[in-house]
Design a protein around this nucleic acid. Structure first.
Lengths: 223, 223
DNA sequence: CCTACCGATCGGTAGG
DNA sequence: CCTACCGATCGGTAGG
């Protein structure tokens, strides 16, 4: 007979992964305060961070639970499955990215296409590389782990996100600033930005502004 | 007492993943022929294909064994661990890519930098998107799954591969074809190409030549 | 390379 | 959200 699994009761060692804020006793809600949304949000952002660092399959729901100070079964009170948690991370990330992009573009709706593309690139870099922005990188690198219906759902958000780029690129093409076919140009440009997740290092690399300048200079003609 | 694991004896269903070439009996070596290298190579290329499609963690060594017609423990006769198999796939892929690139560059060693970069880009697309070239994509997308010593070992090969680009980019910068800082330009350009693995579709997308032209037009000034 | 396993881990659940 | 578990799967191994 196999030895019974020994439930770990306190401080399952978080493998040096977290500043270890784990409550000792029962989380004390002050006076009818509902922190359900808070716990859910903690699960989301912690999952995003771990999924990004180690990958979806290599991160167990136990890892996530421990990192937010829950016991192993508790994440399933908030999300019905590990897949649902991944999907929620991605959805949240894409929605936030779309909102950020929309807000940014409103400010220069009447601006020049060159300045519009600069803002789109800069905003995109921030979404990918800004501190605490783990949601979209997870979405970019764990797409494979999704089921097909969830994939289709996210594809719509991606189309919405990228559709903002198309009119700007068309204008740049018309003015001669961009010579490559617009559709391929969009795919190649976004790829160049997305890949920065792999090599960008906050401590050593350039700033986001320098990155943006480099991308602008690389992609655009002077005319 | 748990029911004993039932060993699957023949035709573990390959989930429609393979054209199902699995030998019925003992693989018959003709006349002292050593096919050890062959089996090893089969494991490598099958692992590459499955790792690429499903990801490293989501692919079990049993999946790989079944796809080449072995039993579950047999891959460990050829590779001492699943990690070692992944590492071998990546190493093989990078070495082949380096060789391909070196061979290609020899042909136009005396050519113009513009034609040299075109060949580098075209060769890179082929390494990523050519049929049966799963090794390098695995290396690009499963880097995280490696231990740090193996990572360091592969980093050397990557540096060797990318170092061929630098003098060409420097020449293009000097001639005014490339205005962005060379180091960032290299990172952004290779990122744009690497990302094509995510969206390129053999049935619908452009040809590799059209891709190469688009990249050239996007990255280079007319001087 | 097959046989026959083991120990560990994992996602998930019933009941409170 | 915790307790106490289950069933399944997985990487890996000894011995032939």
């Amino acid at each position: 007979m196999p030895a019974p699994a020994i439930p770990i009761h306190r401080a399952p060692i978080a493998s040096g992964d977290l500043p270890s804020r784990r409550p000792r006793g029962r989380p004390h809600k002050t006076q009818g305060e509902r922190d359900d949304g808070n716990r859910r949000q903690q699960l989301l952002s912690t999952a995003a961070r771990l999924f990004r660092r180690r990958g979806f399959d290599a991160t167990s729901t136990r890892d996530i639970a421990a990192a937010v100070g829950m016991h192993s079964g508790s994440p399933f009170y908030h999300f019905k499955s590990k897949d649902a948690l991944l999907f929620a991370v991605m959805q949240e990330g894409m929605q936030a990215a779309i909102n950020r992009q929309t807000t940014a573009m409103k400010e220069i709706a009447a601006g020049q296409p060159v300045e519009q593309i600069r803002l789109l690139i800069r905003t995109h870099f921030d979404t990918l590389l800004g501190s605490g922005n783990d949601f979209v990188p997870v979405m970019l690198y764990e797409y494979r782990s999704l089921g097909s219906s969830q994939r289709a759902s996210l594809a719509k958000l991606q189309v919405a996100y990228e559709s903002v780029w198309t009119p700007v690129l068309l204008a740049l093409h018309a003015s001669g600033h961009l010579r490559a076919p617009v559709k391929l140009a969009r795919l190649l440009m976004l790829g160049a930005l997305n890949w920065s997740v792999q090599w960008f290092d906050h401590k050593k690399s350039a700033t986001l502004d320098e990155l943006t300048d480099a991308a602008m200079t690389l992609f655009l003609k002077e005319n």
